[in-house]
Amino acid sequence: MSYFIDLVIVGLSIGMVYALVALGISLIYSGLDVVHFAHGEIYMLGAFIGLWIFKTFHLPFPLVLLGSMILTGLVGMFIERVFYRRILRGGGGYTVGGMAMVICGFGMSIVLQNVAFLIWGPRAVPFPVSYGMPVELGNITLPAAYVWIVAAALLLMAALHLFLKHTRLGLAVRAVAGNKEIAYLMGINVPMTISVIFGVACALGAAAGVLVGPINYVYVLMGLGILIKAFAAAVIGGFGSLPGAVLGGLLVGVIESLGAGYLSGSYKDIYAFILLIFVLMVRPAGLFGVLAKVKA
């Protein structure tokens, strides 16, 4: 039984990481009707930037996390402003602009990988944060890293929720996600709001990268696997739905962990997709999705 609970807890904490990346993908999708295929590289970039802050300034971990989120968010806004905006002027979704944006996302992911390769080299490097002593919960002993991941991710999700529900800018983000033309008529600066959406999504991706760093190595290709998992999580939850992205991420994490623990670790990457296929067979729109686009 305690083995089972261990697996669930490990799964939940990895699931939180998937959920953060999936939240970013869903946020961009709900705002722009496009899938951002370079989001895995944003996650990688966030991890490297966090590592750089950690090694250069020797800041405590929460500040490293925050710093990486801000810097990576700014990088995301820069990428949106300079590269994506010209393409998206033609509209998102199933338009010519939307298709071009998908291709551009793939291109951006290759560019970012190579930029990271030039700066940080090909080696996987450890992220030597010391989280402190393992945490005791009844008769279960948890490595502190997992507690950190879950706590930080929950905090970020709560912050995102408060931002979207209770701030003027958050309301504008939801309006732009719902309908850009009407958002314009409300006096909302739509291009600027789209930049904000990108910045927030990239900051969440960076947070995932920094959180996972200490239990994993940081390396240039770390974004490949996470993109596919987070994408699966977003689809399972219902594409464009933010609660769905969180639930999908947790499900993927737990299923993967249980599968690896009880069946076989070498097929770890398959379980998420078995879950994906199953969910899509039963509920094609995903768990929280409606077939029309969900308006955040």
């Binding site: 939801r174 309006a175 719902g178 309908n179 009407i182 969900v294 308006k295 955040a296």
Partner: peptide, 9 residues
């Protein structure tokens, strides 16, 4: 027009 209120808000 009325139909252009945000229904999910």
């Amino acid at each position: 027009q009325g139909k252009e209120a945000y229904p999910a808000m």
